[in-house]
């Protein structure tokens, strides 16, 4: 183990602490929280998609607060301009020169609230920086912070006044989760919590930015056997040939799937990825990138999401699981 990593036991302890901390705010949504953490440790970007008021932003903020790092929040509106995200060059009269004024994207965690409310042009500015890890303004490039994670939330498109994300941009998000309504117990607990103070305010950072960097490094070192790689490829390839899918998973999706699986393995305290990790992540990682041939609803609709999830489930259960046979006689 190099200096840049921390051991898996420590990884697991810290991640459990973050999980517990976030759960104090988002009650009863352990799976969603875990997926969110997976995204962060796998250096991906998270798309939280659900109806308003189920705690999308709350999750993003709770996660951001648990890590002692720079956090910026952008509320996307139809009149938001690209420069409102990336920053602008301002002419400094004293120095008689343009000076770059960084926008809100320059932070470790950027929360993009209601990303589908902004115009495609503005969306594109954010998504470009997500992929490149840098921002270009007036011919000069400015590197973004590291680690860098965008947590975007959006409403399903049947809601009024939204611009659905195009396929190419949905593909940039590693994981898409939806929160879903809390059950009655969780909802009751939420009410009693809120009576006193805002629980978000009470959250203390659990890890430093240095620790986060180390944890990301640890995830990178997780072993992926060739069999598991083969399994991930098999599944992604199957989506491309499936008759019920109009658009299959991109090669980037395959990369994301394996990366996310590594983070999931690390969260489980394992130093290698199992096919089960791939199975568990197939829907969160792949579903939002695929378009089914069913014409009844457009891309991104909740109906579409359900259909696609079913298809992915079917593909996963049909994919043969390779198991190393080098020892077998």
């Amino acid at each position: 183990m190099s200096e840049a990593e921390i051991n898996l036991g420590e990884f697991r302890r810290l991640s459990q602490d973050i999980l517990d901390s976030v759960e104090r705010v988002i009650v009863g949504k352990r799976e969603a929280v875990e997926l969110a953490m997976t995204t962060v440790f796998a250096e991906g970007h998270l798309l939280i998609e659900d109806v308003p008021g189920v705690g999308k932003t709350m999750l993003a903020r709770a996660l951001a607060r648990s890590i002692d790092c720079t956090v910026n929040r952008i509320q996307f509106t139809p009149d938001l301009l690209p420069s409102d995200i990336t920053g602008v060059s301002v002419f400094n009269q004293a120095e008689r020169d343009f000076k770059f004024k960084p926008g809100p994207v320059f932070a470790n965690i950027v929360i993009g609230d209601e990303i589908n409310r902004a115009s495609p042009k503005t969306q594109a500015a954010l998504l470009e920086s997500m992929e490149e890890g840098q921002v270009s303004v007036d011919g000069k490039t400015y590197p973004l912070a590291k680690p860098f994670t965008v947590v975007a939330t959006q409403n399903p498109i049947e809601m009024e006044g939204t611009y659905p994300l195009p396929e190419a941009q949905r593909d940039r998000f590693m994981i898409r989760i939806s929160m879903g309504y809390p059950d009655d117990v969780a909802e009751l607990a939420m009410i009693s919590n809120r009576e006193l103070t805002s629980p978000l305010e009470n959250l203390k950072p659990i890890i430093t930015i240095e620790q986060l960097a180390k944890m990301i490094e640890t995830v990178r070192s997780i072993h992926v056997s060739s069999d598991v790689e083969k399994y991930a490829v098999t599944i992604c390839q199957a989506t491309r040939h499936d008759r019920e899918l109009r658009l299959g998973a991109s090669p980037r999706a395959t990369l994301h799937l394996v990366k996310a699986a590594k983070a999931k393995a690390a969260l489980a305290g394992r130093d290698f990825v199992l096919p089960d990790d791939i199975d568990a992540l197939a829907i969160p990682v792949l579903a939002h990138r695929l378009i089914s041939t069913t014409r009844r609803a457009g891309a991104g609709s909740s109906f579409q999401a359900e259909t696609v999830a079913e298809i992915v489930k079917r593909i996963v259960s049909a994919a043969p699981v390779p198991l190393a046979s080098r020892e077998a006689v």
């Binding site: 072993h223 056997s225 598991v228 130093d271 290698f272 199992l274 096919p275 198991l323 190393a324």
Partner: peptide, 12 residues
Amino acid sequence: KVERAGYGQRFK
């Protein structure tokens, strides 16, 4: 044991 043998790192 199967998981470790099948998917873990060989030297381990």
